[in-house]
Simulated scan of single mutants.
Amino acid sequence: MSRIVTIGAAQLGPIAPDESRASAVNRMIELLKQAGDRGCNFVVFPELALTTFFPRYYEEDISKMNHHYEREMPSAETRPLFEAAAERGIGFYLGYAELTPDGHRYNTAILVDETGKITGKYRKVHLPGHSEYDPNRPWQHLEKRYFEPGDLGFGVWRQHGGIIGMAICNDRRWPETYRVMSLKGAEVIVLGYNTPDVNTSAFEPNHLRMFHNHLTMQANAYMNSAFVVGVAKAGMEDGCMLIGGSCIIQPSGEIVSQVSSVDDELITYSADLDLAKMGKETVFNYAKHRRIEHYGTITTQTGVELPPELSEAAE
């Protein structure tokens, strides 16, 4: 029996530095309404969906950036989003900046079920960029200044009849992200991103920004036999162009739905979660084909030192 989940990828256009939370939430509620009209069960919003991408601005006193962070979720300003989703019976993924009661700062995402209950939390592990002002960049990328690496690991949660995992932006470029969740049974991996169309740390041809965005998600969808849903905040945001390219990828690695703009835009796809079984039970059947005990032999031949956890497994 097929397990069909209709997924919505809710891309947001740019959020200006002075745009209010209420405005951003209203934009997301409008996309939720569209999702409800199209029969969606689950909607994915971008990374840092409530604010502009504030790590592009340097502030010596980090506390002066506190207004960009959420101290509770839902808050008075974000509760209407939870209520609108619950009214329509739609679960969602939401990315935001988190400031904990004891003063820790994380780039965070939550998973919410169809009743409006938070069922999972993830904190971004692979923080890109730098921590101090760099005068050679046209704009900054200070995630290492404003966030700590996530401390929750790569979890998965049972929701909508399947197993869902979460990641955020730069996590999508690292194979460990997907493999850890896949080993835990993930059938759908959802992530939001805010990616500039220019690499300010080194020269990179512009066309590679979108190519690598899709390459990493498509390849890992295939190698881990999972749906991958990547959703952008896109467009010209306070002088910085953010790529769009939000898409839904099936376990074959094929893009089955993709946005056509860099504005607020909803795309949908009715995903049969049973499609994840084929790869997990055949080509990428870990129990049958993943030979950790032989990695030691391989690394001895190549001269590469085996990580401790694999050394133990190979003994």
Rank of each mutant, 00 (worst) to 15 (best):
G36D: 09
L31F: 01
G8D: 05
I189S: 07
G89H: 04
D238S: 11
E47D: 15
D264P: 11
E30R: 14
G103E: 12
A76Y: 03
E293I: 13
M210S: 12
V259M: 03
T299C: 15
G192E: 05
L306N: 08
Q34V: 00
R21Y: 12
I118D: 09
K124Q: 15
G253C: 04
I118T: 14
Y106C: 10
H212A: 05
D151F: 06
I110R: 13
W174Q: 15
Q140D: 09
H67V: 02
Q11L: 02
F82R: 03
S261H: 07
V125E: 13
E132K: 12
Y269S: 07
K33T: 05
Q258L: 10
G303D: 06
P205A: 11
I164T: 10
I29H: 02
R56V: 13
V125M: 12
M65R: 11
R71K: 13
R123D: 15
T216G: 02
P135T: 13
V304C: 08
E305Y: 09
G235N: 11
L111A: 09
R56W: 01
P55N: 02
A314T: 14
S131R: 14
G165L: 08
A276K: 01
E19A: 12
H160V: 08
V5C: 06
G129M: 09
G91T: 00
P205T: 01
P74K: 00
Q11V: 00
A16Y: 07
G161R: 05
F53Q: 01
G185R: 06
A9S: 11
C40Q: 04
G150R: 02
G91I: 04
L208T: 10
V228P: 00
R158D: 15
V256F: 01
E77S: 12
L183D: 15
Q218G: 04
V304R: 15
R21P: 02
V304M: 13
V156C: 10
T177V: 04
G161D: 06
P128L: 09
Y93I: 06
T100G: 10
G36P: 01
G192V: 09
L208D: 10
K184F: 07
T200I: 15
A16S: 12
L275E: 15
C169V: 03
M278Q: 12
G153T: 09
L12V: 00
T115A: 07
I298K: 12
D264K: 07
H294I: 12
C169P: 08
S257E: 09
Y295F: 15
R179P: 01
L12T: 08
T100C: 06
V256W: 04
P80S: 06
Q301S: 09
D134T: 13
G8I: 05
N285Y: 07
R209Y: 07
